[in-house]
């Protein structure tokens, strides 16, 4: 029973911490982010398994984590607003080259983040040439260029 409670507790703690950190946390994956991710996984592993190195213990932990994830998936599908609250909703950050500053502040995304995505995916380096920039649920920024330019 302890293994299952540990897995549930760690899942919920990670859910809350990464909700606080924001959807773009660890997304850009700099070399430091990679190291941070490894350290977090190491700390999590110790708390999940404790002194138990059995195959059964690992199996119980994996099954518990997958089942909780599936339950959250079901909740997101059938409970209105659950997906938006857990994963956030898409946010339009730029409309016809105009920054939506209030939204940028709320999702903690800078103009530079948008321009990086525009450069990487579309070779756009001017804000005016962006028709829409949308922050997706997974933290990526989708860029839709102005039609006249494409």
């Amino acid at each position: 029973m302890e293994m299952i409670l540990r897995a549930v507790a760690i899942y919920l703690i990670l859910l809350v911490v990464f909700k606080i950190a924001g959807r773009r946390a660890l997304l850009q994956m700099t070399s430091f982010d990679l190291i941070l991710l490894l350290i977090i996984s190491e700390a999590t592993q110790q708390a999940l398994l404790g002194e138990d190195f059995s195959v059964t213990g690992a199996m119980l932990t994996i099954i518990t984590l997958v089942v909780i994830d599936m339950l959250f998936g079901v909740a997101k599908k059938y409970i209105s607003g659950a997906e938006s609250m857990l994963d956030g909703s898409p946010v339009i950050l730029v409309v016809h080259g105009e920054l939506q500053n209030d939204k940028l502040k709320k999702v903690d995304v800078s103009c530079d983040d948008i321009l990086v995505s525009a450069r990487q995916n579309h070779g756009i380096y001017q804000l005016e040439k962006i028709k829409y920039a949308i922050l997706e649920r997974n933290g990526h920024i989708s860029i839709i260029p102005e039609e006249s330019e494409s």
Binding site: G22, R23, G81, S84, S89, P90, V107
Partner: peptide, 11 residues
């Protein structure tokens, strides 16, 4: 694109 003001405020 279904934006949600409540979800944005919650986030």
């Amino acid at each position: 694109v279904k934006q949600s003001h409540a979800a944005l405020q919650f986030e």
